[in-house]
Design a protein around this nucleic acid. Sequence first.
DNA 1: TTCCTACCTGCCACTAGTTATAGGTTTTGA
DNA 2: TCAAAACCTATAACTAGTGGCAGGTAGGAA
Lengths: 285, 285
Amino acid sequence: MERTREPVSAGTDHISPADPLPFGRRGIDISSLQDIRPAAEALRDMARDLSNFRVAVSANIASKLPVTDAQGNALAQSVFGWPSSKDQWWKKPLLALSSPLIFVCRYESEPFWANARAIHTRAPNPLLSQIDLSHFRESVNAESFIVVPVHLPFGQIGAISYSPIEPGREDLSREFALYADILEYHGRRFINGYSRVTSQRPWIARNCRLSKREVECLRWAALGKTDAEIATILGRSCATVRFHIHNAATKLEAVNRSQTVFKATQLGYLGSVAAISSTPAQPHG
Amino acid sequence: MERTREPVSAGTDHISPADPLPFGRRGIDISSLQDIRPAAEALRDMARDLSNFRVAVSANIASKLPVTDAQGNALAQSVFGWPSSKDQWWKKPLLALSSPLIFVCRYESEPFWANARAIHTRAPNPLLSQIDLSHFRESVNAESFIVVPVHLPFGQIGAISYSPIEPGREDLSREFALYADILEYHGRRFINGYSRVTSQRPWIARNCRLSKREVECLRWAALGKTDAEIATILGRSCATVRFHIHNAATKLEAVNRSQTVFKATQLGYLGSVAAISSTPAQPHG
DNA sequence: TTCCTACCTGCCACTAGTTATAGGTTTTGA
DNA sequence: TCAAAACCTATAACTAGTGGCAGGTAGGAA
């Protein structure tokens, strides 16, 4: 696994103690399925050496498929050391869709740490107050976690967590301060690589470019407005709104509005629609 | 700007030469609008000291709004040193939506570098062969770039680029190998922080959890299938499909299918639908 | 001059949304 | 363990909304 490139003067060769990274000076590259297992082993060793952390990985929080090596072995048991009798927290039916940590990964793109009492992000995030931690202990299989959400292209969200192997460590604020950056770096590299070699890339229309008007109409559609409503908002006719949305659909090679909105969202055309000028704040219930 | 936390033994204090990072051992924190300008200045200085790079930032590639400081001054001119007569490449009408580099940011989550001849990512990405570079020089305002895409929650995509200030440097492969990680780290921290303090957070239904069936039906809808088609695919009635989609909409507090798909995509429920078991590969045109 | 973007009109078939109800199965929590 | 909650499945009819198709004009940029 030693890289053939020249040594890097700016990289991770600063790591103390005693350079515990067994995979060189930067995140390990996963270029093929065969690279997965060695990369996972290196990641496991790094986390354990750094602070006796056990690693758990979800390449896609929307999927219950486990991360596996080239032979299909689940890395949770075969590399990361999760006991078979204690399933990964995202392997349980519905837990994949209900664990509070998963919710945080939807809302946050930076590392955070959590235990049964609270979720700690780098900066306050009011959305997190909505998250119900009352069933934390049943939802997860460690007492505390540092989690790195990884937002990938096409709306995919991955996550990697680091939790103490030994029992009783619930306060990770010091480890978070010391290690969040490095854990983020290596976790991102792993998930990026894993996702790249295992995913079929969604097919995207060739070199499409949506016009300003098309995007504008599509944004309102994505917010649930009907053609008539959009027409009123923009001071245009209903037919014109349809025209623009149809154009956008054609460019994105989508057959209907749902697919058009889906693809446009995946490509970041509609992201953070709160940024639309004169958009009213979203109503609160 | 010095941090009050204890020094970090594992961090970025390894940087050579001569620790050019003027803002301490890790990415600068942006906790309020007032932090933006100092963070931008530090970022500018880091990039210039590292390899005489000029910084350009887009917090949201879907928006033509420039990144600004607390007083509303555009950072491109006031901090990053872009000449006013030479607008940022994402400020020109339509260029924000057509620049080839923007396209790459939609498809990639890792740093890449580019010039008029080619786009160089860490690993081959077949989608990039579709990108037309024939108008590169008119589309952008530097000869070469290292770009860091930043995929944020809710489908927002940001980008930060580093381009040589002096003319004539078109091959950035060495700089990329040396510095991509550190440029990524600091770029991410800046965009994450900027986005956090300047964006209105989208309102998201409280603690919603979609059931397996709801997600499944929604995925097919997002792929453009009608209710009848989904019913056939799943071997269920059309009414059941509608019921599930309606339930999902209720949970997400969406008024129609477009909004439902939009929100579900933003939250990562539909990400990488190629991962759906038994999904046929997307057709190629 | 040509092409692209933007805008407009009308009609109709098809699809999605609504509303209410019923029953069976699985999961969750005490 | 058991009851409650959640999930899953299905029905019917009607209305609102979308998509397809056809036709057109105007202005700006290359």
